[in-house]
Design a protein around this nucleic acid. Structure first.
Lengths: 144, 144
DNA sequence: CTCAATGCAAACTGTTTGCAACCGC
DNA sequence: GCGGTTGCAAACAGTTTGCATTGAG
């Protein structure tokens, strides 16, 4: 769907900057880009575009469901003792509680990848996001 | 195994700071901590401990396989056009190339989670890391 | 014409680095 | 005592914010 419509229908203004940024995203569909990447490409389409506008626009696009963040290596650093056991995490969006997740389908996925491409997978990360029991309970109380 | 041994056997020195940091990690096994979290807890065990030492030690611990980074929400921001299609990524550790990965076992995992805990999963992220075909090829040439 | 959106520069946060003092081996 | 390790402060990178100006509706 047209960005202009999606912005206007939600009460946001359609500016040349936002269209330039959207175009860059569209031209690079399926390829993660940093704000700086996006700025570098979008500034060609709209001279004078500021980097902070890129940040603000990406934030808006994410809130509107137009874009979404991708979490690759190099995120904010959290560390954990390497107990040797393989596991993942579930993070509560509300309170930040993290629950351990023993389940891991990674072997199945790696197998699928092996059949479908020549990428050699050596490690991975996966996190689930949602709400922990405590927050769900509190939310229930507040409503009821 | 004892940290002291693991450090010494690799030629690194065993210091009170490193032991304090290791202790904090061990006491919080299974729980992701930020360098600041770790510093706050370790400075109690070793007064005067600097935050930069925490960073250096965590880096060392990761290289030695003693600790490992966990990638939760809030990492370096990459963005992508929301095409509505669900997918993941494979990132090449050598050149940074990113390959799209259609395979997703998330439904199976979510089901497992539903059976095993009361966490409500609303979203997730998963990335595989390894080497892309080009880098594997170049590496082969360099060796042969 | 009004107020959302922008560009700039400055502020802020998380992380890294240069260097002299320190201390494990 | 040698050289790896530390703490400090300053540097750095990525992101956010305050404010006057601009421009979409």
């Amino acid at each position: 769907m047209d960005v202009g419509k999606r912005l206007r229908s939600r009460g946001y203004r359609v500016t040349a900057q936002r269209e330039a940024i959207y175009d860059v995203l569209e031209e690079n569909e399926g390829k993660p880009l940093s704000p700086e990447d996006i700025h570098a490409m979008a500034v060609v389409k709209h001279t004078g575009l500021g980097l902070c506008t890129v940040y603000r626009t990406l934030d808006l696009f994410c809130n509107l469901g137009i874009a979404f963040p991708v979490h690759l290596k190099g995120g904010h650093g959290y560390y954990e003792l390497n107990s040797g056991k393989h596991h993942h995490h579930m993070e509560c969006l509300s309170c930040g509680a993290v629950e351990l997740l023993e389940a891991c389908m990674i072997d199945d996925i790696v197998e699928l990848v092996r059949d479908g491409s020549d990428f050699l997978v050596t490690s991975h990360c996966m996190s689930l996001f949602g709400y922990c029991p405590d927050c769900l309970e509190q939310n229930r109380e507040r409503k009821g």
